[in-house]
Design a protein around this nucleic acid. Structure first.
Lengths: 249, 249
DNA sequence: GTTGACTCTCATGCCACGTGATACTTTATA
DNA sequence: TATAAAGTATCACGTGGCATGAGAGTCAAC
């Protein structure tokens, strides 16, 4: 049942190299490989690839796509519905371009006049009406909110905040060679969870878990965090996942 | 009346950097500049930019776009008509993708079955039905044909051919400091025209003229030809243009 | 048991810009 | 009329998404 690279490539209409690349960057890693190292794609992998290609068609960068679909709170159904809307929008743009070409042909024959603005209708990509909706569903709203809040604080407030964060970071760094499930680790992580909720508004447990994953995936976070101890980011991700799972049900 | 970079960028929906870049690679050089070096785009420049963007929307690489629109036999009207067809084709692809998304949503709900092939309908780009038409209007058909033919010849045949070509090249090289319109030059060019037609199938006069332009534009040709004498490529281009124009009407 | 199609992992290249940095020019405002 | 703000110029380097080999191993078919 499982398919090999070229078979997938031919079915989908992309290159083998592209599949290799997606594997390399961790965007689409086939579920299995043979002993000799051949990649084997299952039907599930194909569905994920389909998701990826929808995003790609809409102009999302691969890095972003990875973030979105790896997010534990990713909702495939919502995604498809919004993507549908965005594809329809894209089609409207295309219709405009076709209208523009028609006008241009008439204009060439001298049949009509055209303003400069009219000559470029359909090209402008900058304002997609579903951008906001997309940001809400997939954006880094949480991160942006935090950044905005930090930006709006006075210097003194910022320093106080940094001190508070550092103290929690240090506590965690001291524990990072132990188990993420230990009582101390979980207590420190709870402190972290409460701190974030207090300062940056409500994080769901799922979002909290997703944030932990981001600490590892996004090097801006990793760098910052690992200053307090190598491997701290990974440790926090694990501890945050444990915390979320334990407090969920 | 003339516009500056940002004004154009805002009108069209592209970046200033993009305009700089297009200038840098010689794709779109503004007609005028101010004393202080500011680029000034006229309405003609805007129309060329529109052409460029149509090609770009259809996925043509910038280098190819440059070749096409700089070709002296470029026919703007024909181009627009074909581009219109290709845009419609692109819209059909989008419609397929939207249908695919609809099916996928139903499939998720368990309402219908989907084959793997169906999951990717609309993605495959490889065969655009207007590709052939586009190649005929804009492609390097002639070059490809020649290459294919040369590749299929025996070594002896290849050598005979090279000898024949060299003799014509030398004849032309000897004449290259005179006028491209001179009787000798035109006679030699006719020999060249006949030689090409005999060996590589029918060149129209327009195609012949276009080929000459390519000798100058495409450095692979220029290098090869100029081995027989510096400036020979340019001389041949001019002589070929004269030949085409004189024998046309 | 050898061809030929397919696969793997590097390594390097390429295109179409993005992103500063630094310096100069033009327009708006005090 | 001076000064600030906005725009423009030219380097120079960086980046994303692969393409294009090179070299070596794998696998089914005749």
């Amino acid at each position: 049942m499982a398919m090999r690279v070229k078979e997938v490539a031919d079915l989908v209409g992309i290159s083998v190299r592209t599949l290799h690349y997606y594997d390399e960057i961790g965007l689409l890693t086939p579920e299995k490989t043979t002993e000799s190292g051949y990649r084997l794609y299952t039907d599930d992998d194909l569905e994920e690839l389909q998701q990826i290609l929808f995003f790609k068609e809409l102009g999302f960068p691969l890095k972003k796509i990875k973030e979105i679909i790896n997010n534990p709170s990713f909702d495939r159904h919502k995604a498809l519905v919004l993507q549908r809307k965005m594809l329809l929008e894209k089609r409207r743009r295309l219709d405009k371009m076709i209208a523009t070409i028609d006008k241009t042909i008439q204009h060439m024959k001298g049949e009509i006049q055209m303003t400069n603005k009219e000559k470029f209708e359909g090209f402008d990509f900058r304002h997609n009406p579903y951008e906001q909706e997309a940001r809400e569903l997939w954006g880094d709203e949480a991160v942006d909110k935090a950044n905005a809040k930090i930006g709006s604080m006075s210097k003194a407030e910022q320093e106080a905040m940094v001190r508070a964060m550092n103290s929690i970071y240090k506590k965690l760094a001291a524990l990072r060679h132990g188990s993420p499930e230990s009582e101390e680790a979980q207590a420190a992580i709870k402190e972290w969870y409460d701190f974030l909720n207090h300062n940056f508004g409500n994080y769901s447990l799922e979002a909290f878990k997703g944030l932990g994953q981001m600490y590892v995936d996004d090097e801006r976070f990793t760098k910052n965090i690992d200053q307090f101890g190598e491997g701290l980011a990974k440790f926090m991700r694990d501890a945050m996942a444990v915390f979320a799972d334990q407090n969920k049900k």
